[in-house]
């Protein structure tokens, strides 16, 4: 599984910043395109997993590595994780209209939307960096972005939206709408945003974008970015930041 030289450089950078090795491995049943598990609890290294068969492997791995780099670029005292207490989780479940769902399902969905809050907000920084600094991966990046855009469009189907409560659907769609807006502009295909605008998400896009633009693109400000996005998508009080530890 040879990775592109620029990806190998990123691996080295993570390893230097964190003093832990990086392992990249396939995982057939992975739901996401790729994930990263930082090294902790005695794990020998950071693990980047990806779904096999992806033609965009280098980009997928690079983007996961960039998330790690942003974490380890910050001084140890300023690194953080997102967690929810039971009270916060209940608050989030109520805010997202998930009260009528079985608790395990409601917990899974609230956890999922908080993950999206983190991966989309910081993900824009990550993708922007890759776009500007790794032109050799641009083709792969564009293919993956287009694939994500198509997936987000599919989620607009009435059959999909009616399965979930409106606050949750709106939180998800607002972030997807910003994704369509920013990538539509970058790819010169503003059509991606038309369905979202038609559904009234222009205001949310403007709010999220304003925060994204106002917050400095500095890993030390990633936490602030998430904090400021949370009220826009209705997730105020549904989580808190705790210091990052390797335990």
């Amino acid at each position: 599984m040879p990775l592109a030289p620029e990806v190998q450089q990123l691996i080295q950078q993570v390893e230097q910043l964190s003093n832990r090795p990086v392992h990249v491995m396939e995982e057939t049943d992975l739901k996401a395109r790729a994930t990263v598990t930082p090294a902790r609890r005695g794990a020998p290294g950071h693990i980047v997993r990806f779904r096999p068969g992806s033609p965009s492997l280098d980009y997928l791995v690079a983007s996961q590595l960039q998330f790690l780099i942003r974490t380890f670029t910050c001084p140890a005292a300023e690194r953080w994780d997102i967690v929810s207490t039971d009270t916060e989780r209940d608050l989030g479940i109520k805010a997202m209209g998930l009260g009528g769902f079985e608790e395990p399902l409601a917990r899974m969905m609230i956890s999922s939307i908080i993950t999206q809050l983190r991966t989309y907000s910081i993900g824009f920084r990550v993708d922007d960096w890759i776009w500007k600094n790794l032109p050799g991966l641009r083709q792969q990046q564009e293919a993956e972005i287009r694939s994500q855009l198509a997936e987000n469009e599919r989620a607009l189907k009435p059959e999909t939206r009616q399965k979930f409560p409106k606050p949750l659907v709106d939180a998800n769609s607002s972030m997807n709408a910003l994704y369509a807006t920013l990538w539509g502009e970058r790819l010169h295909e503003t059509r991606f945003v038309i369905p979202f605008v038609a559904m009234g998400y222009r205001g949310k896009v403007a709010d999220l974008r304003a925060v994204l633009d106002e917050t400095p693109d500095d890993p030390a400000c990633d936490r602030m970015l998430i904090e400021r996005w949370a009220p826009v998508v209705g997730l105020t009080g549904a989580f808190h930041f705790k210091p990052y530890t390797t335990d």
């Binding site: 469009e153 607009l156 939206r161 038609a198 559904m199 009234g200």
Partner: peptide, 15 residues
């Protein structure tokens, strides 16, 4: 070609 569908009820009349 690809299809995009969304609920009619979600259309923003103010547009």
């Amino acid at each position: 070609p690809h299809d995009i569908q969304f609920p009619l009820a979600d259309f923003d009349r103010s547009l």
